[in-house]
Structures are given as C-alpha cells and as structure tokens.
C-alpha cells in the first residue's frame, strides 16, 4: 500500500475511536440510559408540595422504574403542583385508583415518584389523573413533628 495512505487510515481509526468513546459516555453513563424510548402515555398528579422533585426524576412502582417525570408546573387554580409523568406503554395495567407518593431514596438521596397500586378494575390511560397523592416528606417538618410529639404521646403520621 502507498505509505502516504497508511497514516490516513490510522487517523481515521483514531477519530472513530474518539467518537465511539464519546458516544459511549454520552449514552451509557448518563441519565440517557433511563430515557424511555418507544410508546408511552402521559399521566398527571397534583401534590400539595413536591419538595425537591426534579424533571426527569424516576417514577417507580414496587421499586421498578416505569417512567419519568416530564414536567412540574404550578396549577394557579388549586395552588397545587401539577406533575406530569411519562409512563411506558408496557405498563398499561396500573389501576386508576393508585396512590402517588413522593419519596426519597436513602436519607439524603434524590426524590422520585412512587406509585402504590390500588384495587380498581379501571386502569390509567393517556391523560388520566392520579387523584390519591401524598406530598414530599419535608425533613424540617419531620423534625418539628418529632419534637412536638415527644411532649404529647400522640405520634404524627
């Protein structure tokens, strides 16, 4: 082979390797891994307080990731936070009266939406709303409750 061509091939290989590495980092080590490809449907839920929940936070059912939070906006009418979630079409038999709760992974970890299934025959569809919700537990509130409950014997839930 023409020696003038060999470094051209080597350079091509180097550039290819660089791009492969970059593509690997970008798609396999970041939150893109959790990107829900394929068909999915939208569900909303209103919370009194979303705490530290962020866009793209996971939505889990029984600990299994079923979707992601796609937007969080304030509903001016009810003065509640309206959280939209994108759920994969694979999970299309979640009961309509399920319970959505904002939980924290670990003591100081990120927050996510946890869904506890209800007992209804009806299932969640595109654009349905989850009625039963529980806001994020605020650490400050917890501590406050703990302090007051130590005076009285009643414990706060």
């Amino acid at each position: 082979m023409n020696p003038r061509r060999s470094y051209v091939a080597g350079t091509g290989l180097f550039i290819l390797l660089g791009f492969v590495a970059l593509a690997y980092l970008a798609t396999q080590t970041t939150s893109l891994v959790n990107y829900q490809g394929g068909p999915n449907y939208q569900v909303t839920a209103e919370f009194l307080n979303v705490g530290g929940l962020k866009d793209r936070a996971p939505v889990k059912l029984a600990g299994v990731r079923v979707g992601t939070v796609s937007s969080i906006v304030l509903d001016q009418r009810s003065m509640e936070a309206k959280v939209s979630m994108t759920i994969s079409k694979r999970y299309n038999e979640i009961p309509e009266d399920s319970f959505a709760k904002i939980m924290t992974s670990g003591l100081l970890g990120d927050q996510f939406v946890s869904i506890s299934p209800g007992g209804s025959r009806e299932v969640l569809k595109n654009n349905s709303q989850i009625i039963n919700t529980q806001s994020a537990l605020q650490l400050e509130d917890l501590i406050g409750k703990f302090l007051t409950s130590s005076g009285s014997s009643k414990s706060g839930g």
Partner: peptide, 8 residues
C-alpha cells in the same frame, strides 16, 4: 447511581 445523576 451514576446513570441517574450524570447529565449528558
């Protein structure tokens, strides 16, 4: 843990 916290 990495994939839920690292952003592209």
């Amino acid at each position: 843990n990495m994939t839920s916290n690292v952003n592209v």
